[in-house]
Design a protein around this nucleic acid. Structure first.
Lengths: 329, 329
DNA sequence: GTCTTTAATGAAATCGATTTCATATATTTA
DNA sequence: TAAATATATGAAATCGATTTCATTAAAGAC
């Protein structure tokens, strides 16, 4: 493996001149430039990027924190992000928190050890106070997730509205006993969805039973379990607001197996509009989240920050969401 | 941001001693060790990992090349890999080739610029001769994909057998006009699947029409297109071997829309056994690929290589695959 | 024809860690 | 008790690039 020194020697110039050629500095004579290029080719020279990082104090790497990549919402988001990152010469390190607080903090430490130039937070397991400390070390932005206390650029949707229009739609269709699912954490996103849900219920004067709240629900398998629990209930809900297409798909699939009629016996409202929403039977009525745009915009905001454009104090991008009718409601 | 020098000064020792404390060297007096720890805490010192990389000539980072992360097969694979990587203090850089030769080579260049310690190839767009050059720079292993000429550790399935048992199953069920889909490239994996497919046909003395070969097919949307093309044909196949659950799901979904009976009018054989296979109606009969195991084993092989265990010359791990019956055949 | 710019180059410092080498003291071993 | 070994420490070299600073030659200004 040859170094800049080897190239300099072979070309008969100094390391400085080689570095200048490498970085397209002016003030390098054409003939020397040619010599250097020849030497580089001959030695198959490639600059050691670790040395460049150390000197330039930049890593050209950004980390994206997500719950888990196999959730189609996040894999699509990462797909978009990675493409834009690649176009800009950046590497993307995928960090799965797996819904674990400690793991999230371990990943955030990457920023302290100067292994990355920035963090895109699309997962928030810890309280914001914990995370806030890290904002001193590198740009951190929110993507999809958020917290009201955070003074960082945020690209997200109006989750209150999303949950509200989804619930309202159920109510307008005549459903009056609506169950609700959520995962385990209570981030800004989840809290706002809850508020939107309850707001729609209150507005319609509908009751809500604690019995109809399912927590710790985030996988297809969890959805199947929810359906089985529902049909065992004495006071059965006639609709369920899931907050996740995966969960909704699990409910619909299990309903098919157990011969529960969707939507007649149970209406199912998804969230995300993942690919799967168009593939199950009946199709999933769901809240479309523009995941491409969220990913794209977030990465653009991050790149602007790295380039010194854009400010680190609060800057909010709200993207539109809308309901997609398919048949499960 | 404080450096090792700052810590040394505050603790009243040399950089060397601080470094020794950092690396748990023996031969550091307890009292000095305490002083150093106190200084580190006081200064909120965190070692700069770029400097460590440069000196130690290692990056603790590995790259995984995949076609695209939003394919559930690969997102699941990466999920498993990343978890194991994290447990071993390694970072995982996701590289999507997007089925593009040039992009694949750009990513392989990371290895030349010393930005990563190893590459897991789960995509192969270029000819092996192109890729072979890179094996001098860092360990490269195959995962799922492969090429017979490559002398690198490989974790994969017997794709010939997979295609064979899938096709044979169709034949045994009485289907005699079997169409076939594939993507664009012709890697070892794809070639072997073709061979397995044709072998089953030959064995049964069944004909095959070029008309029934669909290429450039890899997305759900492509599957929908395939179904529409099939029903327009004069000489319609009565079964289709897809090589991908996403494509198969697209076919089944479009069949539902257009009222084509599955499997009576058209049997559909998937490949992968993705989550979606259990969610569409009818359920997808498919070849189960143990994606968890592929990901796990690949990462383990890579870690062994990084630790100097294991050899870089050919070493093959063949994992079992099997057929899962669900109803689309 | 002197004075100021501009162009071209390299030696040395720098980024922040680890490792080698030299040295000093304390402890065993013979 | 002398020699050998183990413990403890720091100065300087090193990893491989970039950047600062100094120097010289050539071009342009007046």
């Amino acid at each position: 493996m040859s170094t800049i020194e080897d190239v300099a020697k072979l070309a008969g110039v100094s390391k400085t001149t080689v570095s200048r050629v490498l970085n397209n500095h002016p003030y390098v004579a054409e003939n020397k430039k040619a010599l250097v290029h020849k030497a580089m080719e001959e030695l198959l020279y490639v600059p050691n990027s670790t040395a460049q990082r150390l000197r330039k104090q930049t890593t050209q790497t950004i980390a994206v924190l997500i719950p888990r990549i196999s959730n189609p919402f996040f894999s699509k988001m990462v797909e978009v992000m990675e493409n834009i990152a690649a176009d800009n010469g950046l590497q993307l390190v995928v960090c799965q928190t797996m819904y674990d607080k400690k793991r999230e903090l371990v990943y955030l430490d990457l920023v302290k050890t100067k292994q990355i130039d920035g963090v895109i937070l699309a997962s928030l397991e810890n309280d914001w106070n914990e995370v806030n400390d890290y904002t001193n070390f590198a740009p951190i932005i929110f993507c999809n997730e958020y917290d009201d206390r955070a003074q960082v650029p945020t690209v997200r949707l109006n989750q209150f509205e999303g949950a509200y229009i989804g619930t309202k739609y159920l109510i307008d269709k005549g459903y009056n006993k609506i169950a609700k699912c959520r995962g385990n954490n209570l981030s800004g996103l989840v809290t706002d969805r809850q508020r939107g849900f309850y707001h729609a219920l209150d507005e319609a004067g509908l009751p809500f039973s604690e019995e109809w709240t399912f927590t710790g629900v985030s996988l297809v398998e969890d959805g199947r379990r929810v359906l089985r629990e529902i049909i065992e209930m004495e006071n059965r809900p006639n609709a369920v607001f899931t907050g996740s297409d995966e969960v909704a798909a699990g409910i619909i699939s299990e309903a098919g197996r157990l011969d529960v009629k969707i939507p007649d016996e149970l209406a199912v409202m998804g969230f995300d509009d993942q690919q799967i929403a168009g593939l199950v039977t009946p199709g999933l009525t769901t809240i479309h989240q523009p995941v491409d745009q969220i990913g794209k915009r977030s990465m653009e905001v991050m790149i602007d920050l790295l380039h010194g454009k854009g400010r680190m104090d609060e800057q909010l991008t709200l993207l539109p969401l809308h309901l997609v009718e398919r048949g499960s409601v």
